[in-house]
């Protein structure tokens, strides 16, 4: 009996060693390769997106993904392949998004992810530039007489469970010395329903979310978003850490969108700029120089991006701008030349 057990154990041991050996070999194989090469070989980009945040990611009636984060993904695909549709979308939940990046299930994560220290350092993500500066806000009823966070003393406030908004609210209120009663909901839909029927006095989430939710209320004018911002929520696309070539591609795709707006290059007029005499624009559009090749991309990658989704302002307006239900003010998402934070380093 003992002998049998020993034999069994040794067989198991050999198996595990063999298996471990297999996985290490595989890991080394992929290590030397940049994700960019993998994506190019595969012929399409796998983009991790959110499919249930209004304005940023949703499924349109024809079944296609749409939204601001989706357009960022399309821009990256256009930069690599010249084809914005060479993307396979993977809708990710908040819980699985980071693991999906770490394991290489998705090449890029463009899913309303706040850029924070710990996510950069310990979660093992590398962030591209911020594509949307958001901040947590607070919505109250106009007739409640609440004008600032301090007036919220003793009120009931609806928050979504398990999010940073819950923690931020607690931090801010403690700082101000305001006591309140947090009413925790499982989803935004439930929270806004409770707010609308009046069982809570305030509702807090990201300001972009507040604006979109307010537009769905029966009488949007009776609700008011406080001017104070409870937290900074810079949302940025991210990729797996330790692959500078691939980070570079995503980073400069985002910058290209911003820079194009600064030059006034749009989806409609990009062709007229190709003959431009301006050396900066000629370099930017790849008519001169080899910026594209340095990044491992086609020479005219910027032209492809703009043809696919337009410049940053166009992307913003298409999903959040005045023609949409959100009508969200550009605010910090305005170009630096107009007093905002959107700034691209020079393309040279």
């Amino acid at each position: 009996m003992k002998k049998h057990l020993l034999a069994l154990l040794s067989i198991l041991l050999i198996f595990s060693v063999v298996l471990a050996g297999c996985s290490e070999e595989k890991a080394e194989e992929t290590k030397s390769k940049s994700q960019l090469d993998i994506v190019k070989k595969r012929g399409k980009l796998v983009g991790g997106v959110n499919a249930d945040i209004p304005g940023f990611g949703y499924v349109a009636s024809d079944g296609s993904y749409s939204g601001m984060d989706v357009d960022i993904t399309k821009a990256i695909a256009a930069a690599i392949f010249g084809d914005p549709d060479a993307v396979e979308y993977r809708p990710l939940s908040a819980e699985e998004r980071f693991i999906a990046v770490q394991t290489g299930e998705v090449d890029v994560l463009a899913r309303n992810t706040t850029y924070t220290t710990s996510r950069d350092a310990s979660v093992g993500l590398a962030f591209a530039p911020v594509t949307f500066y958001d901040g947590q806000g607070m919505m109250v009823r106009e007739d409640s007489g609440i004008k600032s966070l301090k007036d919220l003393q003793g009120t009931r406030i609806a928050v979504e469970s398990g999010t940073t908004t819950e923690l931020n609210l607690a931090d801010q209120m403690r700082k101000l010395g305001v006591t309140y009663e947090p009413v925790v909901f499982d989803s935004q839909d439930a929270a806004i329903a409770a707010y609308e029927e009046g069982s809570v006095d305030g509702f807090t989430t990201d300001r972009s979310g507040l604006v979109s939710r307010r537009s769905t209320l029966a009488k949007p004018d009776e609700h008011f978003i406080l001017s104070e911002v409870l937290s900074k929520e810079p949302l940025a696309p991210s990729v797996k850490d330790g692959d500078s070539k691939w980070v570079g591609v995503v980073t400069w795709t985002v910058y290209a969108l911003i820079q194009a707006e600064e030059y006034g290059i749009t989806q409609g007029n990009v062709d007229t700029f190709i003959d431009s005499e301006d050396p900066e624009i000629r370099r930017f559009l790849g008519v001169e120089g080899d910026l594209g090749e340095q990044l491992g991309l086609p020479k005219d990658f910027v032209v492809q991006i703009i043809k696919a989704v337009g410049n940053y302002g166009e992307v913003y307006n298409r999903h959040l701008g005045p023609d949409t239900v959100f009508d969200l003010d550009r605010g910090p998402n305005e170009l630096w030349t107009n007093g905002g934070l959107m700034y691209s380093p020079p393309f040279r």
Binding site: A51, D52, I53, P54, G55, G57, Y58, V59, A60, S61, S66, P91, D189, S212, R213, S215, T216, H319, T324, V325, F326
Partner: peptide, 10 residues
């Protein structure tokens, strides 16, 4: 859930 995120059907 994805459909109700469509701004058209908020």
């Amino acid at each position: 859930r994805n459909i109700i995120s469509n701004p058209q059907f908020l």
